[in-house]
Nucleic acid binder design. Structure first.
Lengths: 140, 140
DNA sequence: TTTCACACTTTCCTTTTGGTAAGTATGGCG
DNA sequence: CGCCATACTTACCAAAAGGAAAGTGTGAAA
């Protein structure tokens, strides 16, 4: 009942050009993968970390995915990778300013999720109840 | 050269409890899929849209994924679904306030992408060049 | 009677994702 | 000599994602 009827357009921000649009989509897809944000979070929280340490802080990630994620982030300029010439090898990962900024940008989503978690749970429950005994389309 | 050395911790925002952490991760994973954000964008830009219209505005989405995405968004309370009892059937989709807020929250990422698109392209190009003739680990 | 519009649903099948586990390279130590 | 640590890489395989296309239901129009 608290939901007002609304059919008007609302802008989400600055206008988007078609090419930028495509680029942003691609970036969002990349960034929205399960691990990238968690790696950013780990590095932002703990500062410089070595390969294995990143994996530990993130938790539940396989070596393969950790390598892949870090490599991609390095390519995109989100992290720096520093090899210390010692044996056994030490490799340090660190957030770039750009990577840190991305983390901050994502904070908005984090806060949103926090704010609406109750509402989401409620909505899902209601939807489940409704779905139990209702057809999707009913004409007249 | 413009990148300063940094090994200090930096906070991304409010502290996170372990359980909230997991919940928020799940929500972000759901929300951050390829299509959800694009549907939000379409609805925020154009206002109320019918099923087929959403698909057109989003572009490149299959019926199957459109249905699935809209259903999920409806369950989560991001959109409302209104069936007009006419034949052939009309179904209208509209952003809820919560959905719109999510769009706004995601704007930060959008802006980030816009700001750093050049830097990303450059970083990728350099990475490609470097990768062409450099081993990943080299001791002493 | 066939056709059409619309919003799906379903089936089939290919592509992608991602985990597990084993392998690689290096040099110091016992 | 074999073993260790570290940061990967590779091969194999199972599961999930997702596209294409055909089918569904309704009533009006041709």
């Amino acid at each position: 009942m608290a939901q007002k009827k609304r059919t008007t357009k609302r802008s989400l921000g600055p206008e988007t050009s078609p090419e930028l649009d495509a680029l942003v989509r691609e970036i969002i897809e990349r960034v929205a993968d399960k691990w990238t944000m968690l790696v950013i979070e780990a590095l932002a929280e703990h500062g410089t970390l070595r390969f294995t340490a990143v994996g530990e802080k993130v938790g539940g990630i396989s070596q393969k995915m950790l390598t892949k994620t870090l490599r991609q982030m390095e390519a995109d300029g989100l992290v720096t990778r520093t090899v210390l010439p010692v044996i056994p090898p030490h490799v340090e990962y660190d957030l770039t300013d750009m990577g840190f900024e991305l983390g901050k940008a994502f904070c908005g989503v984090w806060i949103w999720a926090e704010k609406y978690q109750k509402a989401i749970a409620k909505s899902r429950a209601e939807f489940g109840r409704r779905a139990a005994a209702m057809p999707r389309v009913r004409a007249l």
